[in-house]
Amino acid sequence: MVVAAGGSASRKKGHKRERGTTLFVFLCVLPALVFLAIFLYYPIVETFRISQVKTTGLSEEVFVGLDNYRKLFADEEFLAGLRHVFSWAFWSIVIQLPLSFFIAFGLTYYSNRMSNTLRAIFYLANILPSAITAMLGKMVFAPNYGILVTIGKVLGWKWLASADFLGNPKFAFWSVFVIATWAYAGFYIIYFMARMEQIPRDLREAAELDGASALRYAWSIVLPDLSYAIRICAVLCTVGSLKLFDLPYLMTTGGPGYATVTLGITLYRHGFINWNYGKAAAIGVVIFVLSLVFTIIQFTIGKGKDA
């Protein structure tokens, strides 16, 4: 069955060789499979089972069926987390992607000696540990010593000088969002740039001969050409908002109230602070189902690629 790619030579050597090949293939794939079986496949199956029991880890497990899910959908914190998946995804798509598109276009269209350095700088925040990103976010938005408050003091703007961005439910979500944009937009920028660099040069030359401005060229040629990349990034935004944990947890621990709660934070709180495994596993299943849906959307989008 197993044949070395392009190797008609090995096919001729008969059965002994073939059995050796099968063994080789098996041994090569084995370590990866063992890792995944223990730390991924088994836990996946377990998640579904635990999501249907009531247990604290110490107490006996009691089968409760879909009770955990029923409780979840009556749980305000969970519902807030679920809402935030969608609002976070929406605003990421509406704000981060166009911003990244313009930066990427500017860097590619007017490529010069600065471009590579600038690209490296825009991606820099992306590789920072999230604990540090969150800390920097706090230094920007904190009351008393935060930089925005300090600017307010210097300019004599009372509303800014006394603002508590992270403690005010109206602003907390947006404060975290700004820091997330700072940290994550770099990826979309480098991805868009890589795609833009693949657009054939003739197209640009033809557009310039026709007297098209940079904006016109961006709108009529680059944007349609990148439609697939943009859709992929939209899916990444959505999946990212589903997995969001570090930044809101470290900046606001989900508060004030439930203003910045995410599904990840709810899961962590139910599972590892309240030790309610059943409920936490149920949230895990919800995250899984949603990411499955988003992934299927991604595959469908991929098939519909026309360019």
Binding site: L40, E46, F245, S291
Partner: peptide, 14 residues
Amino acid sequence: FIPVQMVLVPLYKM
């Protein structure tokens, strides 16, 4: 395609 969050609870239990 599996988000880490999904398997946290069973992973910890295990």
